[in-house]
Amino acid sequence: MSVVLAAAVGGLFALGTFLLLRRDLVRVVWGVAVVSQAANVYLIAMGGISEGGNSVVPVLSGHGESVPETADPLVQALVLTAIVISFGTTAFALALTYRAYQENETMDVQEWQ
Rank of each mutant, 00 (worst) to 15 (best):
S2K: 10
V4G: 00
A7R: 04
V9A: 06
V9I: 10
L12D: 03
L12E: 12
L15H: 01
T17H: 05
L19R: 01
L21V: 09
R22Q: 09
R23V: 08
L25Y: 14
R27Q: 09
R27A: 02
W30C: 07
V32C: 13
A33M: 09
V34N: 04
Q37C: 07
A38T: 03
N40A: 15
V41H: 05
M46W: 07
M46G: 11
I49K: 10
S50L: 11
S50K: 03
G53N: 00
S55W: 10
S61A: 15
G62E: 11
G62N: 13
H63K: 10
H63T: 08
E65V: 15
V67I: 14
E69N: 05
E69P: 07
T70F: 12
A71M: 07
D72A: 04
P73I: 06
L74E: 11
Q76S: 14
T81K: 11
A82D: 04
I83Y: 13
V84W: 13
V84H: 12
V84Y: 11
T89I: 11
L94H: 10
L94D: 02
T97G: 08
T97K: 02
R99N: 03
R99K: 08
Y101T: 07
Q102G: 03
E103F: 03
E105G: 06
M107N: 06
M107S: 11
D108K: 09
Q110S: 12
